[in-house]
Computed example of a mutant assay.
Amino acid sequence: MASITTANSGSKRALFYDETKTRRTVYLGRVSDKESETIRRRIEGILSSKILGSPMAQDDAAWLAKSPALREKLIAVGLVEPEPIPEKVIIPTLDAFLDGYIKRHGKSRKPATVAVWKQVVANLKEYMPEGIRINQITAGHAKEFHEKLKARGMATTTIHKRIQFARQFMHDAVDWKIIEENPFLKVKTQKSSVKVNEFVPQEVVDKLMKKANPVWQVILGLSRYGGLRTPSETLSLRWEDIDWEMNRMSIPEPKVEHHEGRGIRSCPIFLELRPILDEAFEIFGDKSEYVVAAPQYRAAANTAMGWKNSNLRTEMTRLLRRAGVSGWPRLFHSMRASRQTELQREFPLHVVCSWLGNSPRIAQQSYLLVTEDDFAKAAGVQKVMVEG
């Protein structure tokens, strides 16, 4: 199939006929008889594989890999295919990558989440060097970004969340093997150790209830005595979600419905809440599908970007003034936290978390509060111990 000829000058060449019966010549130059014989056998093996349409034998491929000059000659006569030219990898700029991230992942997230992503993206585009490619971002850039957020006077918790999201974006780049290491891994942030919620005593709620109209009595009751998230859960609860005989509520959970196994939770109608719901049902049961008979609040709060407080906070502030009561941080969230704090005194943590729809970690971190009753109880115990 292949043969070796020697010219008068001593230069050798390999002759063979390819799969189309065309004669081919490979000029070998001045090589030894042993080397030329090896080349002849290898050519025959490679040619045989090509004619049969099978992959090149492994030992032939290994031999050829060690002879790049000969490989080029075999490519020139069509016996070996040239190596494919690797596609040039184009590393995206940070701006392009972030826009692509939101486009790829935004469809599966709630609009409110995407809105927060866009805030972080805007920060990154503003504070990172213009036109920087994502593989050029270093831990130094990430730490500098952190410092610039702090210089803006952002709250500790806000900065912590924004660095978390920036780290999340870069993890995606690592997953796609665009970068090898996440530059935000070395940025250390901390959550605020101060709980921003404040315990709202029942006596304060009683004052508000006396000044509230029937609709607001229900809102206050669901938030403070039911522990519902307001506005999303409070305004989503329907009368059909109330099981009067079992004394339970099936509470819609718009905030976490995208999580597997979430969307509706079962919660008791607590003792303080039952008379409020009974009275509301007498007034609104045959007039409204929803427990809170205020469609204007739902329309304003349930937006395309997710649930918002809308004007509930404004109305709540007016109610506080009418009742002569001072406000507190995070008006509705604090009432929910107050309910969880009370329940925790009587029931196991995992049970309370199931009823209120959060995790033990989140409850310990943000919801469970130290109250004046705790101090009074401890002081009373201490007094008895001293007297004894």
Rank of each mutant, 00 (worst) to 15 (best):
I4K: 04
A14C: 15
D18K: 01
T25V: 14
Y27P: 11
T38F: 06
E44C: 00
L52F: 03
L52P: 06
L52V: 04
A57H: 12
D59M: 09
P68K: 02
E81G: 00
I90S: 13
A96F: 06
L98C: 08
D99I: 03
R104M: 10
S108M: 07
V121R: 05
Y127N: 00
M128Q: 08
Q136R: 08
H141R: 00
G153S: 03
T156L: 11
R167I: 00
M170D: 02
D175Q: 13
F184Y: 05
K191E: 15
S193F: 01
V196Y: 07
P201M: 04
K210H: 09
V215I: 15
Q217G: 09
V218D: 09
V218F: 02
L220Q: 08
R224F: 00
R224M: 02
Y225S: 08
G227N: 09
L228F: 05
T234S: 11
L237N: 07
L237A: 03
R238Y: 02
W239Y: 09
D241E: 11
E245D: 15
M249S: 10
I251N: 08
E253Y: 01
P254C: 05
R262S: 09
I264A: 08
R265K: 12
F270E: 10
L277W: 06
E279L: 08
A280Q: 04
F281L: 03
S288K: 04
S288N: 06
E289M: 04
A293Y: 02
P295S: 04
P295M: 03
Q296W: 09
A300L: 11
T303P: 07
A304K: 14
A304W: 05
N309H: 14
S310A: 15
L320M: 07
R321N: 13
R321S: 13
H333F: 03
S334L: 06
M335D: 09
R336F: 03
A337T: 12
S338N: 08
P348Y: 02
H350S: 13
C353H: 04
L356C: 13
R361D: 15
L369T: 07
T371Y: 00
A378R: 12
G380E: 03
